[in-house]
């Protein structure tokens, strides 16, 4: 173990449990996002669960490994991408249906209650899940970075704070 970040974070027990748990959390978040049009849930709820998985890693293993799992730049890009996918769905509504946010994927009535139904709503759910998941993670990561700076009283964080979005 010559990882510089290995000493950060909480105890070995917490880290081990986190390692087992994070995959399941991500899977559950993805399930909530993808089934949002059939069961309770959807983009926001699923996105929060996805963010919780990342935040758990962040808290248990420290900021170093946390940022290696999901870098802040990558999070910011994914965040913008989520929003742009959502806008693109709306714009495609104009291109294909003539009206902004027109439902341009028609599903036959017998497909109701199946996974592939509900037109554009699952696509929107995925975009929202992406956006919420990454931006919630960013909120925590950015606020915690500043917190360290206040505690240590060092100016080291000044540069870091600038990437606040």
């Amino acid at each position: 173990m010559n990882d510089p970040h290995a000493k950060e974070g909480m105890s070995l027990i917490v880290k081990t449990v986190t390692r087992w748990l994070k995959g399941f959390l991500l899977l559950y978040g993805a399930y909530i996002v993808l089934y949002g049009h059939l069961t309770p849930g959807g983009g926001f709820a699923g996105g929060v669960i996805v963010a919780c998985a990342f935040i758990l890693v962040f808290l248990a293993c420290g900021a170093g490994i946390g940022h290696r799992t999901l870098g802040r730049l990558a999070a910011s890009e994914l965040d913008s991408a989520g929003a742009l996918i959502f806008t693109a769905v709306g714009a495609l509504g104009i291109a294909l249906g003539g009206v902004f946010f027109r439902n341009f994927i028609r599903t036959p009535p017998e497909a109701h209650f199946r996974l592939l139904s509900s037109g554009v709503i699952p696509v929107c759910n995925i975009a929202i899940g992406l956006k919420v998941g990454t931006s919630l993670f960013m909120v925590l990561a950015i606020l915690s970075a500043v917190h360290v700076a206040v505690k240590g009283g060092r100016r080291r964080m000044v540069r870091r704070r600038e990437d606040k979005s």
Partner: peptide, 24 residues
Amino acid sequence: VLTSIVIGLGVLAMMVAICIRLYE
């Protein structure tokens, strides 16, 4: 309510960030 919770989250994050800066 879902929308208003999301908005509340944004405002809360903003307020906490300003509080931290004020404390600094």
